[in-house]
Amino acid sequence: MANTNSQHSGHGSSGHGGHHIIPFQIYIKVAAALIVLTFATVFFHWLHLGALAAPVAFLIAAVKAALVMLFFMGLKYDDKLNQVIFGCGFFFLLVLFGFSALDIWTRIKEISTL
């Protein structure tokens, strides 16, 4: 390539020269944690927490999801920009949920006969 100019503007495109290799041990530990948390999900289900059951199950799932994203998908060691990009997806999902729920909470909850 003709261009050997090192002053390039694309941010983060040449931040770290090689690829980050996540140690073998971390993968095994993360998988173990995921399996433990899966058992925890079922355990809490047996406790019959009533109204708390759904939030607890969701919370455990969120922790598991975070582990998968950070280590298996390597987001922890990735570009800041890629982290922001992936975060954006969840943010706009929340927007979709927020406004749809706002409408339905103030409408259907009051009129549904089912």
């Binding site: 899966t38 289900h45 199950a57 969701f58 799932a61 998968v68 298996f72």
Partner: peptide, 15 residues
């Protein structure tokens, strides 16, 4: 794909 299943399992089967 794994991530989505992590949510589907408790939401559909348990809660």
């Amino acid at each position: 794909v794994d991530l989505i299943w992590i949510f589907l399992f408790p939401l559909l089967y348990l809660v």
